[in-house]
Design a protein around this nucleic acid. Sequence first.
DNA 1: TTGAAAGCGCTAACAA
DNA 2: TTGTTAGCGCTTTCAA
Lengths: 337, 337
Amino acid sequence: MAATIKDVARETGLSLATISKYLNGGHVLEPNRAAIEAAVRRLGYSVNRVARGLKTRRSMTVGVLIPDLENVFATSIVSSLEDRLQRSGYSTLVCDYRQDPVREREKLEFLAERQVDGLVIMPLAGCADGIRRLQERGVPVVLLDRTVAGCACDTVLTDNRKAAREAVDHLLRLGHRRIGLIGGPAGIQTADERLAGYLDAHAARGIDADPALRMAGAYDVESGHRHASALLAMEPPPTALFVVNHEMTLGAAMALVERQVRIPGDMSVVGFDHRDLARVMTPPMSIVLQPLQEIGEAASELLLDRMAGRRTGAPVLLRLPARRIPGGSTGPPQRQS
Amino acid sequence: MAATIKDVARETGLSLATISKYLNGGHVLEPNRAAIEAAVRRLGYSVNRVARGLKTRRSMTVGVLIPDLENVFATSIVSSLEDRLQRSGYSTLVCDYRQDPVREREKLEFLAERQVDGLVIMPLAGCADGIRRLQERGVPVVLLDRTVAGCACDTVLTDNRKAAREAVDHLLRLGHRRIGLIGGPAGIQTADERLAGYLDAHAARGIDADPALRMAGAYDVESGHRHASALLAMEPPPTALFVVNHEMTLGAAMALVERQVRIPGDMSVVGFDHRDLARVMTPPMSIVLQPLQEIGEAASELLLDRMAGRRTGAPVLLRLPARRIPGGSTGPPQRQS
DNA sequence: TTGAAAGCGCTAACAA
DNA sequence: TTGTTAGCGCTTTCAA
């Protein structure tokens, strides 16, 4: 159906090799150039990358595997990845695995069969084997957001512990002493690190953190809402809240709204990732923003370097700093101070 | 580097054809089966889909092109698409074009070069040529969310006009007579349709819609916030609000929160798409939900039918009904009734 | 600068 | 059931 390089050869009377060479930036005599251009246009020829990839053994494609296409955190990074990779001529093959380890393995296999030249993955678990198989084939792999036990890969993530420590320290500095934590599921690396940061901040100031104020959420809107409600119902309630991901921050914000809690008048809140909330609430809620764009860029650079053979040797681990947009935080309400 | 079917042939002493046949579900003698399995395992062989695609002239890949990877509306549909397509053995090649017509064209060309067997696109504009070129090659195309002038493709979208009409009629039935509209940009099909539905509802009841209550937003959080604020500041303010997309609904909700407007006590609100807000506010805000999953499924079915040649003939246009989750809407505040 | 020819990994007649 | 062979569209020596 579609025109091939053969058709162009026939139309122009030139050989396959000449057409191919010209198409790949080689030089041909001016009249030939014109003839090729004309034939390409007339035939509506466009290169078949599948065939090219078979021959060159490079697909010029990078596989990108994320937990969920509906996860803005993930897709924002993908967006930045794609941007950078495209500038170097690579395309991205984006897959999600719906938080499902079985699917994760399947997709990994699929990407391998598609002959990706590199892989960027935000891993769940149990994909160590699949990753190693790719690496054995010489396909460089970059991990995002989390590490994988038993996998020696370049890794790019947010310095979660430091981000959490600074966020909580900010609240402590304002005078808060009862800071509710809406954390993530125990055992999940990002959640553990953010919890550690919360504890670090308290420890650094010699303040006892009341364990009753620490909630382990499920990283979804509902648990943010539920745990915030529970914290608000405590007697006495905390004077501040630290919420550690995008979805739970929205949930918590809504719980506060329902109860007509004024931020930061009645309660200071530091959320996570939800830039929209920061933009929209007045005074703005303080939000820790992970460096999504930078993560994508760093991962791309690492991968491009590895694919080009410019970088060899031991895997690197990049912990990028988060930043916090200030919000209108104040100290605890008068009755507390 | 990676093992090929040749290696398996050598290891087993069988021919390429036998291996290939077995790998594609053919029958071989039991001892041969065992030998192949063993060799595959030992070599870590996995099929090279690039090569297979070249031979079969089918990539078993569907291109998916959306305006933005960070657009939850789009990625939710993609998620459902992928789910369905995968069950039929197809993989999806997801691209976004960042709301950029140039990029849109480039990605379309890219997908064509990748030999996709079908395309699902949420189009922006000016892609009619690219789409036609694919169709000429025999690649079926399904449009999402919007139609494209000059393109005869199957199309799946929400019945926006009806959804808007019903949402607004609901408010009118409750007794509201001044209903603020936070609409989308004029000229954008979905925005125009939703505006038309708003007007329909008024017309059907013979009620004059005050043009001052109609705002044209930019489909982003900020404009939802700004226009909601402006409407609230009017004298007299509307008693109800209809907001027509995901981002603006969040913006409007936040504006209401800031001003301590109680929903639906002081103001009834019907939003759009933002399921999270519905789940999280109490009483829940009424939200029009587009049938994301159904859109994805319908688009997949159409595409699969076309790709399999099971469906031929004129393109179909599917307008799927939205549904509205109720919220706690009431009539206008007492002073108004 | 151009062309002939081989071959990337795989599948699909066709023959045995 | 198995094997032989040709060739998908392209790139890339190597020779002309």
